[in-house]
Design a protein around this nucleic acid. Structure first.
Length: 252
DNA sequence: ATTAGGG
DNA sequence: CCCTAAT
């Protein structure tokens, strides 16, 4: 067996969300290796046993981090790679691929890799290596989505009109200082979706409809700032002139 | 830490 | 929303 370390690859992270079954009952992972030329992913990597308490407040992100921590702790540096051909592990001696029955002709499609953790040091007890891990959890608990309220959208639009795009940090400070669940990245994302939403037919829009008046402002601000973005050097940035009459704002 | 974009 | 390369 060749250790991952020897391969020079760096296990960057474990993606766990991709495998959320539609039914929301089980959760698997996918290990992703990234290292210059080495870039491959292995699906359905199963860990023999793993129990993780999932707090009511868990989010997809927090859960992934939890799993990552636990798995990392368990695997440590004991993660190994095995070569699988047509579903069977290929013994690891010094035979050439050809001797092992692996050649161009025998379709390389049947060639795969298996990640095998060495559980020798797990709780001092040996764990069957074929017992698939299944994290039982409620799918609903995994949602960390909190829809933007109309009030929030208005605050965001107002802030961008004044501070211009690409300055989510400032927007955050100006209008979402106390909204702990809205990071400047969230604001950036929301603005992106707003621009998109405003660009498509009303029928294609989802969720609580955003007043057309706001969407118009979104498009106006988006167009304005993309046109007045100082190319590079110092350009005096002309402030966006809000053209909406006070009357139109009433009732908003 | 932030920005900026793709996922 | 998440992930993360590039600043």
């Amino acid at each position: 067996m060749v250790s991952v370390r020897k391969l020079g690859g760096a296990l960057q992270r474990i993606h766990s969300s991709e495998f959320l079954h539609k039914g929301g009952q089980t959760l698997g992972f996918q290990l992703l290796f990234l290292h210059k030329d080495l870039k491959f992913s292995i699906k359905s990597f199963r860990v023999p046993e793993l129990y993780i308490e999932v707090p009511e407040t868990a989010t997809v992100g927090s859960l992934k981090r939890m799993v990552m921590e636990v798995v990392t702790a368990i695997l440590g540096s004991g993660l190994q790679v095995g070569v699988v051909l047509q579903g069977k592990k290929v013994r690891d001696d010094n035979r050439t691929l050809q001797h092992a029955g692996i050649s161009q002709s025998s379709n390389l499609d049947s060639l795969g890799f298996a990640l095998e953790p060495s559980f020798a040091h797990v709780c001092g007890q040996r764990t069957p290596n074929d017992l698939p891990l299944v994290l039982q959890c409620d799918a609903d608990l995994l949602s960390s989505r909190i829809p933007f309220s109309l009030t929030e959208v208005e605050a965001l639009v107002e802030a961008v009109e004044k501070l211009r795009t690409g300055r989510c940090r400032n927007v955050k400070m100006r209008a979402f200082e106390d909204a702990d669940h809205r990071t400047y990245v969230d604001l950036k994302d929301k603005w992106k979706t707003l621009v998109h939403t405003a660009s498509i037919a009303r029928q294609q829009r989802r969720g609580e409809p955003v007043p057309q008046e706001l969407l118009d402002r979104v498009l106006a601000a988006h167009a304005y700032w993309s046109r007045h973005q100082p190319k590079h050097g110092k350009h005096k940035v002309e402030p966006l002139q809000i053209t909406y009459s006070p009357l139109e704002m009433v009732g908003a």
